[in-house]
Write a protein that binds this DNA or RNA. Structure first.
Lengths: 148, 148
DNA sequence: TATTAAATGAGAATCATTTTCAATTAACTT
DNA sequence: AAGTTAATTGAAAATGATTCTCATTTAATA
C-alpha cells in the first residue's frame, strides 16, 4: 500500500524494519510521519491522536508496541521530563543529545556531546565500567524566551 | 519524638524541612533512613516496604507525597532507568551525577561533571538558553563485572 | 497541656501500560 | 493477481502506577 506521506524518515524506518524482518505497517509508518512533522517531542497520547487523524481508529496498544519497538531499533528516542512524563522524538540512531524547552516541551537536537572529552577513568576507579550515557539539557527555547 | 535511627542525613533532612516550615514526621524521617542505608537506588515499592518494616502500616500515598516533596527540596534524586522505571536515591542538594549499574541497579555518585567544560555557546546558537542538565551513566558496577 | 495547621491512612478514583485473543494484513509464493 | 502464512492489529479486559478525598491523627508552637 503506497502512502501519500512518503519521506526520507519513512524510507529509513522501512529499511530498518525490513532488515529485522519486521513489517512496515500503515500504523508504524504513520507514527514515523507524525514524529517527523512535529517540532517538539510528543507524548503517547499525542502520537495516538495524530495517527487516528491520519488513519481513523487505531488501537492505543499498537502505539505502545510501536514506540517500544522503535526505541529498541533506534528509530525513536524517549525523553524523560522532570515531572516524570515521557516524550518521543524521531531519531536515526546517531549519537545525538537533546535540549528540551521546559515551557513548550520543544526538542532540539545537537550532536556535540558534552561528555565527549570527559575522562571516565576518574569515575571508573571503583571498578565501574561505563557503557552508555544519557544526557539531556533543560532550558528555554528561543521562542519561549521572547514570549516570556 | 526521638528516633533511634538519627544520623547525619536525618539531621540534614530535619533542617531542610524546618527551614520550609514543614513537619519532620516519623514517616518522612523513615524514608530518609531507608534511602540512606541502601547501597542502591530504591523503587517506590521498595521504599514503602522498608518504611512499613520500620513503622508498621504506612500509606503508599504518603510515600509518593514524601518523595515528590523531597525531590523538590533536593533531598532525593530521581533516576530514570532505560525501561522507564524510576529509582530514588538520597541526595544533599550538591551537584552530583549518578552511575547506574544496569545489572543490579546500584547507584554510584560522582561529583566530577562530564559536561563541566562543555561550551554551551555551540548549542545556544539558535537562542536556546540552557538552565540545567541531566546526566546519567549506565554500565556495570565492579561486583556485577566480576559476577558475570 | 491545649491549639492548630499540616500530615497521614484508607480506599476510591484516575490514569498509564500490558495482556489476550480473534480478526486482519504485509510480505512472500505461485 | 490470488493464495498462504506468520506477524500485526484492535478492542476490551487486566494490571499497575499514581493521585485524590476526607475523616482522623500528629508535630510544632504557645
Amino acid at each position: 500500500m503506497m502512502k501519500d506521506f512518503e519521506c526520507t524518515q519513512e524510507s529509513y524506518a522501512r529499511e530498518v524494519l525490513r532488515e529485522k524482518g519486521l513489517k512496515s505497517t500503515t500504523q508504524r509508518l504513520a507514527v514515523v510521519h507524525i514524529l517527523h512533522i512535529s517540532e517538539k517531542s510528543l507524548s503517547i497520547g499525542e502520537i495516538h491522536g495524530g495517527v487516528k487523524d491520519m488513519l481513523g481508529n487505531t488501537g492505543l496498544a499498537t502505539i505502545y508496541r510501536t514506540l517500544e519497538m522503535f526505541e529498541d531499533l533506534g528509530i525513536v528516542k524517549r525523553l524523560h521530563f522532570p515531572d516524570g512524563g515521557h516524550g518521543y522524538a524521531f531519531s536515526q540512531g546517531e549519537h545525538v543529545h537533546h535540549m528540551v524547552c521546559v515551557d513548550c516541551r520543544g526538542v532540539f537536537d545537537f550532536s556535540e556531546c558534552p561528555a565527549e572529552n570527559f575522562d571516565y577513568a576518574s569515575v571508573e576507579k571503583q571498578g565501574f565500567r561505563v557503557k552508555d550515557h544519557f544526557i539531556q539539557l533543560f532550558g528555554q527555547c528561543g521562542k519561549c524566551v521572547e514570549a516570556a
